[in-house]
Design a protein around this nucleic acid. Sequence first.
DNA 1: CGAAGATACTCCTGTTGCCGAAGTATGAAC
DNA 2: GTTCATACTTCGGCAACAGGAGTATCTTCG
Lengths: 113, 113
Amino acid sequence: MPRTGLQEPSFLVLTALAAGPLHGYAILKDVETTSCGSVRLGVGTLYGALERLAERGLVEVASEEVVDSRLRRSYRLTEDGAGVLAAEASRRQQQSAAALARLGRRGALGWTS
Amino acid sequence: MPRTGLQEPSFLVLTALAAGPLHGYAILKDVETTSCGSVRLGVGTLYGALERLAERGLVEVASEEVVDSRLRRSYRLTEDGAGVLAAEASRRQQQSAAALARLGRRGALGWTS
DNA sequence: CGAAGATACTCCTGTTGCCGAAGTATGAAC
DNA sequence: GTTCATACTTCGGCAACAGGAGTATCTTCG
């Protein structure tokens, strides 16, 4: 998979949006929450990823509202985005299964020995 | 997950070695085979990754032999490496499951609509 | 025989997607 | 008034590739 595929931050952003439209900070929160605090994207990373994903047509702006004098821009996953996310998730699933299978066959998952 | 985690190429290299010691080109072959030809690592990528993984103590040189006047260096996964691979595989498994679950709940996996 | 391809590792330049942080601005809390 | 949280903008730096060329030997083929 070339680097033009999805890196983890982008993958997680798409996953967050798969549940419905969210604005920037809500995406950050979602990613952190669903990873039980183990993954925290920086805002630079988030907006950089959103821009690239938007350029690729995988996400689009759902709405822009002014809340408390602050612009709040929500994003939504496009159909293309959903397709790419599904494909990537499957790929990662397969790769993970392969790794775990081999580790199991190895008789050591890194903590039994 | 900080960038000091595993990117895909490194992850796949560790997976290849989880099955037993292999030399460079055999790793390339393994990665390509297990991905059904969809992932082909370049030699620059491979040896770069091997070097970094070795520096981190996740792999080590298993043997160096001269075959047909050619140096053949085999690498093996260390116990630490197996542990890191297991953890990473689990992480990716979870993330994939989460993404697929949300897509399912969304009623569209990108190809039903 | 010479050329091309396969095997095996070395080395290097260029690119990409973050990573981290600083900036701007407003409202809320202390 | 100060600090913190919310919300987006912007940017320099860098790690991990990605791609490819180089060196060298053996095998295969014309």
